[in-house]
Simulated assay, not measured.
Amino acid sequence: MKLIIGNKNYSSWSLRGWLAVKQSGLHFDELTVPLLGEEWDRMKQDMGEVQPSSGKVPVLWDDDAVVWDSLAILEYCADKVGRERFWPKDEAARGMARAMVAEMHSGYQALRKELPMNIRRRVELPGLSDGAKHDVVRILGLWAEARARHGSAGPYLFGTFGAADIFYAPIVTRFVTYGIGVPGFAQAYMQAIWEHDWMREWITAAEQEEWVIEQWEAAV
């Protein structure tokens, strides 16, 4: 398999796809294509021949299968190795995890716009819009409920590392980058994500990248 991702410093969806394939335990080769550069333009042209949403990352190639979109990649990997590696065994926990992942996949537009992922950066925000504040409160509420109801087996949202953690990992990096104040339980969860071996690998690579996207550095 080959996974095409964007810059590790900036690409939140690439992080999700990469973590999903790492969680599968399957071997894969990794290709990083710098966003908004010449390689990016060439990739968009090439990818237009095999998938309709051309120019988006991540993309997973597995023989004749071409899978784009991070959630589709996660589900593709789950089908190959067993869904229990990604989703809780308990029915109620699994239902909540699926709902949280779906909400992350389609929601929180204000937060995404105002707090773009930028792992290397540390910024003191002058303030958040009401929409972004609502997103932060909603996310913290979901984290609290998941931990309280289903997190007794370990430090992650549903105890053991899984799909929900994969999808909320970029939110952890955003909260760190922009100094979002969170309660103690959320600090402990964020620390567990930040110190996960795969996250440390990703963060180290992001910090070593030389690519800079000025328009995203100037955000906020």
Score class of each variant (00 low, 15 high):
Lys8Met: 10
Asn9Val: 06
Tyr10Phe: 11
Ser11Cys: 09
Ser11Ala: 10
Ser12Ala: 15
Ser14Gln: 08
Arg16Trp: 04
Gly17Ser: 07
Gly17Tyr: 03
Trp18Pro: 00
Val21Pro: 01
Val21Thr: 04
Lys22Cys: 05
Gln23Trp: 05
Gln23Ile: 02
Ser24His: 05
Ser24Met: 06
Ser24Leu: 04
Gly25Met: 04
Gly25Phe: 01
Leu26Phe: 09
Leu26Gly: 04
His27Lys: 13
Asp29Gln: 12
Asp29Pro: 02
Asp29Arg: 02
Asp29Asn: 09
Glu30Gly: 05
Glu30Thr: 03
Leu31Glu: 14
Thr32Val: 14
Val33Gln: 06
Val33Ala: 03
Leu35Glu: 08
Leu35Cys: 09
Leu35Gln: 07
Leu35Pro: 05
Leu35His: 06
Leu36Thr: 12
Gly37Trp: 10
Glu38Tyr: 13
Glu38Gly: 06
Glu39Asn: 14
Trp40Gly: 10
Arg42Tyr: 10
Arg42Ile: 13
Lys44Glu: 14
Met47Ile: 02
Gly48Trp: 08
Val50Ser: 08
Val50Asp: 06
Val50Lys: 15
Val50Ala: 09
Val50His: 13
Val50Met: 12
Pro52Trp: 11
Ser53Gly: 08
Gly55Cys: 07
Gly55Phe: 10
Gly55Lys: 02
Lys56Arg: 14
Val57Gln: 04
Leu60Trp: 01
Trp61Asn: 05
Trp61Arg: 15
Asp63Cys: 06
Asp63His: 12
Asp64Thr: 15
Asp64Gly: 09
Asp64Ile: 12
Ala65Cys: 12
Val66Leu: 06
Val66Met: 08
Val66Thr: 07
Val67Thr: 04
Ser70Thr: 08
Ser70Pro: 08
Ser70Tyr: 01
Ala72Trp: 01
Ile73Tyr: 00
Ile73Ala: 01
Glu75Ala: 00
Tyr76Ser: 03
Cys77Asp: 03
Cys77His: 02
Lys80Thr: 01
Val81His: 01
Gly82Glu: 04
Arg83Val: 02
Arg83His: 09
Phe86Gln: 01
Phe86Asn: 00
Pro88Cys: 07
Lys89Leu: 11
Lys89Gln: 13
Lys89Tyr: 07
Asp90Phe: 04
Glu91Leu: 15
Ala92Arg: 13
Ala93Asn: 11
Ala93Gln: 08
Arg94Ser: 12
Arg94Trp: 09
Arg94Ala: 13
Met96His: 13
Met96Pro: 05
Ala97Phe: 06
Ala97Ile: 06
Arg98Met: 12
Arg98Lys: 14
Ala99Val: 15
Ala99Gly: 10
Ala99Thr: 15
Ala99Asn: 13
Met100Trp: 11
Met100Ile: 15
Ala102Cys: 09
Ala102Gln: 15
